[in-house]
């Protein structure tokens, strides 16, 4: 077991180094000149200003040298200075990431909490109304465009029924809790501030449902398919011949086997939620990485883009590592 974990960790480290190289090459070979994006027309027409500006940001150095500096910086936790915000990229990311992590994690929990039971029910009561309903929910979730769903939800629950709060992480007049983790739910709990906790939770409801919609569909379908396959296995018939209750068979024999493919999908889905909240964040004015990404890309802010890409790839690697570890927990055949 320990060896399995160590092997996976080593693999993840190798992948991270490769990811950094890829990130760097992509950022430095795409067409687009940050000079033109950052400097005004007047300044850009002055060669001296341009030279000075390029020297300041190290853009005059050869590619390999810049890579060396970048790698050195990454190893020291230094992702460079954002051209747009003039602040360390890491500080920017640290500021925006918690909002996204909070949103994505809640959305992920919602997706699992809805998708897995729905998938189980659809498989157990195959071809019943439950199955049909699950199919419709999945289809709607997967095929609705996020921005459309976001607007509809806001229009109905905020604009129409007025039972949900508007965009943002908190009411405009509320103060954020004292920062410990940056995750408002946790910070407000730590501060014992129930009003803020409640406010945060209420603000998370709509965006997390919108963000989770597509994932719910995927998880429901995968769970259903995996359950149906596991229910065909001989050990299920053996369990019936043992006189076990159907409920026990489903939960203790079928489900643990069916969860294995769901975990694979879950890992990919969580990584996607972390990196793919741009639409949702924009509509819900969510001060998260998605919006930061969008702004940095528009400004051709290379240090920021590289920083974000790096963080996203490393977090994807971490999620995959978690997936590998959960395999080991779920499936004894994987452990060595």
């Amino acid at each position: 077991m320990l060896r399995y974990v160590l092997t996976r960790l080593l693999g993840a480290a190798v992948m991270a180094v490769l990811a950094i190289l890829v990130v760097f090459l992509i950022a430095n070979t795409v067409p687009g000149d940050p000079v033109l994006a950052q400097l005004g027309d007047l300044a850009a027409s002055n060669p001296d200003t341009v030279m000075e500006w390029r020297a300041k940001w190290g853009l005059d150095l050869p590619l390999w040298e810049r890579y060396g500096l970048f790698l050195w910086g990454v190893l020291h936790g230094d992702l460079g200075i954002s051209i747009a915000s003039q602040r360390p990229v890491l500080a920017d990311i640290a500021q925006y990431a918690p909002a996204t992590i909070e949103l994505a994690t809640i959305a992920f929990v919602v997706a699992l909490a809805v998708g897995i039971p729905l998938g189980i029910a659809a498989a157990v009561r195959r071809d019943s109304w439950v199955d049909a309903a699950a199919r419709v929910i999945s289809l709607v979730g997967v095929s609705s465009p996020t921005f459309w769903l976001a607007f509809i939800m806001l229009a109905i629950f905020y604009g129409g029924l007025q039972i949900a709060p508007g965009p943002g992480r908190l009411d405009p007049i509320a103060f954020p809790p004292e920062e410990v983790t940056g995750l408002f739910l946790i910070d407000s709990l730590l501060a014992g501030d129930w009003d803020t906790f409640h406010d945060t939770a209420a603000h998370l409801v709509l965006p997390s449902i919108v963000l989770a919609a597509a994932t719910i569909g995927l998880i429901t379908r995968t769970t259903r398919a995996a359950m149906l396959e596991a229910m065909q296995q001989d050990y299920v018939r053996v369990s019936r011949a043992k006189g076990l209750r159907e409920r026990f068979i489903i939960l203790r024999h079928v489900l643990p086997n069916a969860l294995i493919p769901v975990v694979t999908l879950g890992g990919i889905a969580y990584a996607n939620l972390l990196a793919g909240a741009v639409m949702t964040e924009t509509v819900f004015s969510w001060p998260g990485l998605g919006r930061y990404t969008f702004r940095s890309a528009a400004a051709l802010d290379f240090p920021a883009i590289m920083g974000i890409t790096l963080v996203v790839s490393v977090s994807t690697l971490l999620v995959n590592l978690l997936v590998d570890l959960s395999y080991a927990a779920l499936d004894p055949r994987v452990r060595r």
């Binding site: 011949a241 643990p256 004894p332």
Partner: peptide, 24 residues
């Protein structure tokens, strides 16, 4: 019927490779 199955009447199937739950 369930009370009899696996208690008074039990059954052994053909393929022992698939008859046991691999994760239990």
């Amino acid at each position: 019927l369930r009370a009899l199955r696996g208690d008074r009447i039990s059954m052994v199937f053909q393929d022992p490779m698939t008859g046991l739950n691999p994760v239990v």
